[in-house]
Design a binder for these strands. Structure first.
Lengths: 212, 212, 212, 212
DNA sequence: AATGAATGAGCTTTCATTCAT
DNA sequence: TATGAATGAAAGCTCATTCAT
């Protein structure tokens, strides 16, 4: 009887935990089998739960998948924001921190990359996937542009089209993810980071040090 | 009028023609609906043919999909090789031609990009997709490295890690494809080309002209 | 009246009950249409259940069919063992009981005979069918041989090759099943029994009484 | 021009040959795969001919199968009639010849037995198969009864129900076929013959010699 | 909140049959 | 007479979803 006040919170918490558990199982399965071959049975089994559980917590498979992508997006954003906070505040350090964060295990391990690409592969025909995929880089791009502007000013580099530059950097970042996912010869996260840093050194030679 | 005895489109088309027709229908459907929602019924209907036709010509759906990816790969290669042949032989022109070819309509229209990403999305769990995806860039990468070497020598640029450079360029090229596919603000093939050219101008300032 | 809270037939029947229900439906359909024309739709409809039900409980059609044959084999064995137990223990009575049991309604009604022959018809190309068909008579044959030996001893008949004798009796038993199944002129179970009893009287004239 | 009178005959002959060729291929396939898994593609391929060939010569698969069974029936009859003609004319010899003929290679090799049982397996649901299967033994049974009558008279055996006796003999003959088809321990045609001869010796001890 | 038996639409595949050549 | 590409109905099977418990 004394325990009766608490359960509401506990239950709500339990609910969130369960959802997260199912999302994790979904990521696991998508990475292993692809989006097309992932069934709700795979997900619930991997979560050690029963058949109907996904529909109970997410109402539909579509919804689970949307939430999964959303989860990935949130993690991604959290990760680069944390990286910025931890790093020194000068633009070069911040830029390095931002771009290095893309290759941290938390966001770019083989499983998660596979899932990102799985969703991108369906993005054209699924507005929700497309939208979340776009959202993933909106803030990132703005921050990136800001940092580039500050760096160019600080380093007195000749003027550049910052928007284009940011596009290029993000493109390279994504392309390196693809390379990690698909390469035959074991291209790793650390390799991707090296390539990216080399690129930054080439564009911002005066700040080489920050990009070693 | 003399051709009137034989219909222009013979009902029994040559096998190769039929196969091509079905591959085209597959591309169409994958672009429209994604890989996961593409059914053989979609493909055969789009081709204006009957239910069993895909299994007749490709034995299985899996095989059709493999051949579709293969077709895309072949087209891609053909396209950049043709671009190289048409362009001037100096390394800068060749480099520009090679990288511009990635954004030609033949290989990078919205449909084909969607299909590429659809396959990449399943590449982790499908060895065949992975393999063909790797093959897509093997020759391309070699040629690219060769051109970079010649250009660096010609321009007497300070030494660079050519392999890494090539990785970065290809990554950017692929990432720009993603941007075309997913961007909200109408990022087009021509925009991608601009970004890439800007990048080349930054790395090879003495050859700016070739990358305008 | 007290049972009214729970319906007599619970929607979710115990697994074993469902399986049995489906096997019965399969027997029904095989008898009516043959093995080749029996579809899962026939079986599930006959069982008053839905399309997917067979795959849910048996994983595949092949498995359902194997289990069906197995069921038939088990019933057959149960039947003759029960017959032996019920009969007097002298060899002649036992022999009569054993061979009469082959023509009891439980195991040799028109439906089940049709099913046996349906499986035998495919036995050559289906190892599982062949194996189960062999197993059907292994114990039966041993018991039969034992009884023949005891009877010959008891009656002091001139020595016979018991194995061959048993082969012949079993062959006749099976052939009589075929006759029931195929005969134009309404050859019935009781007719088959008569033929078999006549045969036994001929071989074991001193025990005529037991085979009337 | 001189050859123009002949072709009609040649063609007709060719037609029969072709039909026979297809029937043989059907037997081959049914023995190998069973009735249910035999497709027209199997048959035409085994005959080294093209897809549509069966429909051309038999109008339908059903028809081919009926004709195949018919062919088997005809061969079977031919075989025992030939055996009777070759044998001595006394009833015992005739009887021995008749029953031995059931285990000659021509009619009772593994392939043909498999086909017989394949058809019997569907006989219940296919009137045509049932009919032809009945026809197979109608004349045979009459002859058998006649021979039994003559033998009983000749041997002055105590009176028997000849119809029942014939039923039993035919049943045993068929059951021995089943044993050849299904037995695990290599029960052969010669073994079947032995069992049958033993039986005859038991019933007609005075004619033992004829049944050795 | 959780289970898991049941459903049924929809999928890929097979195959007898047709028919232009 | 023969071919073999094409058809389309029908099969076995999968799986998201429902719902009694």
């Amino acid at each position: 009887m004394t325990a009766q006040t608490k359960p509401l919170i506990t239950r709500r918490a339990a609910k969130i935990v369960r959802r997260r558990q199912l999302i994790d199982a979904a990521i696991e399965s998508i990475a292993k089998r692809g989006l097309g071959d992932t069934t709700l049975a795979h997900v619930s089994t991997a979560a050690g739960l029963s058949q109907g559980i996904v529909n109970l917590h997410f109402a539909s498979k579509e919804n689970l998948l949307n939430e999964t992508l959303n989860q990935l997006r949130a993690e991604y954003e959290q990760n680069w924001r944390a990286a910025l906070e931890k790093s020194a505040s000068d633009p070069a350090s911040q830029l390095a921190a931002l771009l290095r964060s893309d290759y941290q295990k938390t966001v770019a391990d083989n499983k998660k990359l596979a899932v990102w690409f799985a969703f991108w592969g369906e993005a054209k025909s699924r507005p929700t996937y497309k939208k979340i995929s776009q959202e993933r880089v909106t803030d990132y791009r703005e921050i990136l542009k800001e940092l580039l502007a500050r760096l160019i000013e600080e380093g007195k580099y000749s003027p550049m089209d910052i928007a284009e530059l940011a596009q290029g950097i993000i493109a390279m970042a994504d392309g390196l993810w693809l390379n990690i996912l698909i390469s035959a010869n074991g291209f790793k996260r650390s390799d991707a980071e090296k390539v990216m840093m080399q690129y930054l050194r080439q564009i911002f030679p005066k700040h080489k040090q920050a990009f070693l």
